[in-house]
Amino acid sequence: MKESCKHLEIRGLRCFGRGRPDADLQAGSVCRYPLGEGEDAESLMDTIFGILPLEGGSVRWFGTPLEEMGEKRICKNLRRVMPLVADGGLLANLPVCENVLLPAVVRKRHKALELEGMLYGLVEGGLFGHGKETLGLLPHQLSDLQRCSAGFLRALLCRPEVICFCDVYRVFDPVKEKILSEWLEEMRRRLPESAWLVIHSETGLPEVFCSGSVG
């Protein structure tokens, strides 16, 4: 594969004063990205996303180095990426339905009404623990697992090229972790072309999920 086709390339990244492993993400790959002690996934993700300045090393999105991109271009590139975080990254005062639709509408993949139809079509079978009734609720009325999985619905509607899965499982007990691992399998099945960067600090789910694809 040509270098410019790589979705995400991380080389010699320094974060919290420590060097990070290198990673190349290409379509369909799943890359485990371990955190050291005392490091948090959010800050690492912010460094990779260009929100925090690079301390050292390089991050290259879709063939272009991050430092060469202006803020506008980073923002545009981020529309090809989907972060999945423990609380779903939901806005507190928007109902779940609008929260899920917002990034898809911004990315202009389909018309808003079509997207709404697609979303209701997805949740009809109770996908990821969501039903029609949960879509009208506010984020604080959902369970932690439902909040997390609202991010999955977002990703299914947006079909991003890169999914940045950020230490989500850490907050869950083993029962919920099992449910989550099933949902992740479902996500992989539905989005086979997406590249996954799994940022994690513990063993368990990431080892199973990223088997054979450690970066």
């Binding site: 993700m45 929100i51 923002c75 529309r79 990315r107």
Partner: peptide, 10 residues
């Protein structure tokens, strides 16, 4: 939420 919006490309 401001950072979350930015991460979503908004």
């Amino acid at each position: 939420e401001v950072v979350a919006l930015y991460r979503l490309g908004i």
